[in-house]
């Protein structure tokens, strides 16, 4: 029997209350650790990472190949088997169940980031999916148009202005940054509602294993993309991951990096005039009202 935190069973509640001081201490510790580590080396002018230096590259590359070897030997075959044996509707239920648990932590982080509307929308999702979605196995809330978000404590630190620090590949966990790795180990891991699911360590470990397999199985498509699109998989993964992470911190709307020269025109001096054939068009443009104006 699984006791969900939102389900209103009394024992997990007491558990949460008892752990709060310890959690606060960990929380403060993580913030400090991340701050001091990330302070050492930052990427981008706002420190939120971007495609920039990779001071830990030798370590990261060896960790990357360690993870890759492990993945090929264990996780990928297991996830393939899971995909083959378990029919898709059941896999969707498993994914929805873990997604519902994750929404709780997402909601907490929304509040920490000062976004109460999004936070309550996420809690509302949990309430709906836990009840009408049979304990979370059906994502009814998404069908109702309440969107799923994805927030974690690393992003919260980013919103608070903590720089991401250098790119860091963690053993078993994969791409991260110094900030996000510290946030995960000190806060996210403990804020994970799986901890509240059951007091039995054995059963909890089974849940972790199932979640890991579920996550891995979800990556097959992205993995195929990476294989075909990357000239160097390590750096492609790094650059894509750092961009995506920065994008997440800014909720899909990151400001341009000041040192971002990806769009400098100095490389393109001869190119432009070829495209602008019709001079008549240009005269017309000047006279017509601006296209982009939004009241």
């Amino acid at each position: 029997m699984i006791a969900l935190p939102m389900g209103g069973s009394p024992s997990p509640k007491r558990g949460i209350a008892a752990r709060i001081p310890a959690r606060l201490a960990r929380f403060a510790g993580a913030a400090l650790l991340a701050l001091s580590l990330a302070g050492c080396a930052t990427t981008g002018t706002d420190g939120q990472g971007g495609v920039a230096g990779d001071p830990l590259e030798p370590f990261n590359r060896s960790m990357y190949s360690f993870n890759d070897t492990l993945d090929r030997a264990v996780l990928r075959p297991v996830a393939r088997g899971y995909e083959r044996v378990v029919p898709e509707p059941a896999r969707d239920m498993v994914g929805n169940f873990f997604g519902n648990l994750a929404d709780i932590w997402t909601g907490v982080n929304q509040l920490l980031q000062g976004k109460p509307a999004e936070g309550f929308s996420d809690f509302w999702r949990v309430a709906i999916n836990t009840t009408f979605g049979f304990g979370g196995i059906a994502d009814v809330a998404s069908l109702m148009g309440i969107e799923k978000h994805d927030e974690d404590f690393g992003q919260t630190l980013g919103v608070w202005g903590v720089p991401s620090g250098p790119y860091l590949v963690l053993p078993f966990l994969g791409p991260s940054t110094v900030r996000d790795g510290a946030a995960w180990a000190a806060v996210d891991f403990w804020g994970d509602p799986v901890v509240e699911l059951t007091s039995s360590h054995g059963r909890r470990n089974n849940v972790y294993v199932l979640r890991t397999i579920d996550r891995r199985a979800r990556l097959f498509q992205a993995e195929g993309l990476l294989e075909g699109a990357a000239l160097d998989r390590y750096s492609f993964m790094r650059d894509a991951w750092l961009q995506r992470r920065r994008n997440q911190v800014y909720d899909g709307n990151p400001p341009p990096l000041d040192d971002d020269c990806a769009y400098c025109d100095e490389y393109l001096e001869e190119e432009d005039d070829a495209g602008a054939q019709a001079t008549g068009d240009r005269a017309g443009d000047a006279a017509s009202p601006p296209v982009n104006e939004r009241p």
């Binding site: 971007g50 000239l231 650059d239 769009y263």
Partner: peptide
């Protein structure tokens, strides 16, 4: 796509090669 710009990503891929 999903927060990842093609040009920004390929810039370092191309440069590396």
């Amino acid at each position: 796509i999903l927060g990842i710009w093609i040009v920004e990503t390929y810039r370092s891929q191309f440069n590396q090669e």
